[in-house]
Design a protein around this nucleic acid. Sequence first.
RNA 1: GGGGCUGUAGCUCAGGUUGGUUAGAGCGCACGCCUGAUAAGCGUGAGGUCGGUGGUUCAAUUCCACCCAGCCCCA
Length: 1080
Amino acid sequence: MAQFDTPDQLSLPNLEEDVLDWWQDHNIFERSIEERDGQPTYTFYEGPPTANGKPGIHHVLARAIKDLFCRYKTMQGYQVARKAGWDTHGLPVEIEVEEELELESRAQVEDFGIEKYNDACRESVLEYKDLWDTLTQRMGYWVDLDDPYVTFETDYIESVWWLLKQIEEEDLLYKGHKIQWYSPGSHTVLSSHEVSLGYEETQDPSVYIRFPVAGEANTYFLAWTTTPWTLISNTALAVGPDLTYVKIHHEDPHRGPETLILAEELLDDVVDEEYAVEETFEGSELIGAEYEPLYDYFTDRAEPGEDAWYVLGADIVSTDEGTGVVHMAPAFGEEDYAVGQERDLPLFNPIDKDGEFTDEASLVAGTWFKDADKIITDDLKERGRLYKHETYLHNYPHDWRKGTPLMSYPVESWFVETTKLKDRMVELNDTINWQPEAIGEGRFGEWLENNVDWALSRRRYWGTPLPVWESDKEGSDHYEVVGSVDELREKAGDQLPDDDEEIDLHRPFVDELTWEGPDGGTMRRVPDLIDVWFDSGAMPYAQWHYPFENKDAFEANFPANFIAEGVDQTRGWFYSLHAIATVVFDEVAYENVVVNGLVLDEDGNKMSKSKGNTVEPFQVIDDYGADVARWFMMSNAPPWESIRFSERGLRDLRRTFFGTLENVYRFFATYANIDGFRFQNDRMPVEERPELDRWIISRLHTTTQAVEAALEDYDPTTAARAVEDFVEELSNWHLRRSRSRFWASKKSEQNGPAGQGGTVAAAQKEAAYQTTYECLEATAKLMSPIAPFFGEWLYRTLSEVTAGEADSVHLAAFPEAKEDERDEALERRMGLARSIASTTLSLRNQAEINVRQPLPRLLVVTGTGVPEAEVEQVKDVILDEVNVKAIEYVEHSSEVVSRSAKPDFSRLGPRLGDLVKDVNQTVRQLDDETIDAYVETGELTLTVDGETVELGPDDLIIQSEGIEGWLVEQEGEVTVALDTDITPELRAEGLAREGVKRIQDLRKEANFEVTDRIVVAYDGSSQMADALAAHADWIRNETLALELQPSDEPTGEAVETFEVGDERLAIGVRRVEADEAMNA
RNA sequence: GGGGCUGUAGCUCAGGUUGGUUAGAGCGCACGCCUGAUAAGCGUGAGGUCGGUGGUUCAAUUCCACCCAGCCCCA
């Protein structure tokens, strides 16, 4: 006969390995997709990782989220295809390769050869692919690793090119300038990532400069800057149109009287001497004013006062620091450049690629730009233009390799004009369900609101080449965007290999393709690569090689129902997916997105290799199992908050949740095997089952409903916690309270009812098995999206014996919350029962009477929250739990109940105002009689502070506190009193229970099987002996004893003499062989 | 420097949208109970100026302002 497996303490890592093998052998993952053919699809997009680094524990977090929703939706009947992907381009790859090859500059890379360099990148990028695949499989992340999309493959690049072509056709692709951080030290533009590596605290000059107002003698605009080297290129001054400015007269210690113009608010910060305000006006009045250029190097290029060297109004001007008059050099600052573009200011750039001034600026010609600070400052001082010179400590970016300062510099770049579609992107974003909501509205929403055009160009080597060819004809601005390999073939003809398979769309091959332009020039590719984020944002289309292939697959899987990545992707993947989908398809790319936070170490610090506090994912899985890690990361805190990863947390979880569930199963299996339960009978109607069973079934459906609601809301934490609570209730209340039903032996069933915990009817027992089985099976399903291994093990271990519905839990249907098996009133009153029981146990504790000693009765104070009728229905459970014979009730308003009163502040506060404090004082001191009267009439008149206060019904809250002459305990609304009067009969019963406990101890000591029959001999002091004799039948039944005989000298396989209080008891137990038992 | 998130018991977290005078849970700890789940189970207890300061209010952990700390993103 099939038996439930009863393993020793489970090793979860081993169990998981077994499950993995079984999945593999039976193609469960494949089947979970194939068997859903024809069902509605649920689309998930895998954000591609870069496999040139090792996976960390945070990847387990992200992947646990992805996996769980895919598994959940599969169980709901959807078909969920999951294509893996690899992000293979970009700077991290190049940096790694440069380190390996010891290349330090662009020049060195180019000398080395782009082709060889890119070959090295191509190899490096999948260096750890196997490690990633291993982790993916071992942690139970189901994704199709055999057919991933790879961003460097020709098909993928072709789809990306197609997208760019669409953008061009919508007239949204253009060439412009982007201010980028340029490192003159290494002659290269740095990416934002590299820039952020190089911020250093730097001491820079802080200078205040006089700009002479044209046509007004001895009058100056006072401007401030921390980069004097940019003053050569000064093009304009900016003021805040709404700010208040003043014209002051003062006496300069060195130069004598003069007039200065600056923002009023900053006056006292800037001007140290005494001054007199001559005029006050708004910034807008200054707009258009002309001033004399500081240097005349560029005066031949622009007309002062018209093209340049005038005052303009700009919102960027603030009064946080400086003077409220901002020196503008559009060549050297992002904000300056933006304003310059708007106003059509000229660009004065006298610095060459090496960071040195050109001959254009004779004063500093040949000088390194930073070294020019001092020369220029000295020059201006000499010429009387320097008002004040201080130093300023701030963060300034440096070249992360060389340590030399960066300068921001306008670089030619190709853009997607996303600003044109900003409103549409915002609108579409509003339809996306963000978890947590705050990121969609906040970080992402604001980012969209402040959208700037997407600068695609990257001056790098390893990436998708920008498919733009420009005519090299002087003065021509003709360009062509190539949107497919065919188109390229059409244009470049036989420069391409005949075989499509041999085409590589990377540099340097594409750089060599040229053709004749319509204007007679030669079409040459621009040297740029595109931003790698465009690569990954193109995956909904490029993973299918859309539109060249797989149109159906694409259409069935766009947009995604669900994606999940880390919060760092806000401006990365989340944006690139959204922008491309909006621009090209006027759609969202994803409907639901779960954002996960960081994984911090135990102390809340960021994990980093240098700190040595990283957690090795394989180690965690080997030690605790993937399920424990997954469950921990889902249940401990919402995954979008930073999670503290602690081994202790894992250990606790293994012991509490998984350990408890394991124990419930083992208990169930032990007795089910003894009784041969295999769920062969029909399912018992729930309404025919005992109260306790109906309760846990109701809790199961409530839990199922809660789990489903939480998962539908993409909130795995609430779901996990609901399952945890259910398992706690299943174990610590349902199963514990059901134990007697399980161990009632078959034989004794025929003996009819005996004492407490004795025999029960067969139907009751069947109900216990069915109920526990159903709960375990449902738990296996409910937990399996998060803990796929344990869920599978539990499900299969159960269903192997009972021939369950599906081969695997992951092929089964997610449980359904059955409304008709829920009973809220029952759940409420069982809560009441637990509360009364725990309060009573607390009383026993105080009275120092152990639970084995039966007590005559307990008294429950009834009231609104504690209705007698409800308690009465759960009376048996309570009495059995606390070992008390009877329950009685006393009305909350009864005279024997003493009470206290407190004001209902929410009612009285608004009415009485300040007086409420004094009323509180008075009310809390009211005696029982006054409270009784109030309870009776609902009225009370107080005199407080000389004022008369009338109180009506509900103005006071009355609480029961005690019952005269009883031991009383209170817990919330529940008040319980315990009668501790032990009659001789109760005493005898208590002793009999003591006897049973000792016999059971001996059974155990002697290693008898749970089902073994025994013979007991005993010798006890008089009261003890009388008690055992009086309860002999019951004792025999409880201990499976065929005989229970007094003996002067008890013998057997286990013999011991016990002291029980004042009593003495010697016992011997002997096992009865099976045939002997049959005859008995 | 700008923006954001977080701050509640030793630890991990609820709660707080609607302010109400006794702020909860689990783990850990201590004590006890139970003993046919036993390297399990149950109960009780200790433990908190709800990050700080100020404001609004009869009343603030909750609302407002400022500050501090940790982290993230951006510059």
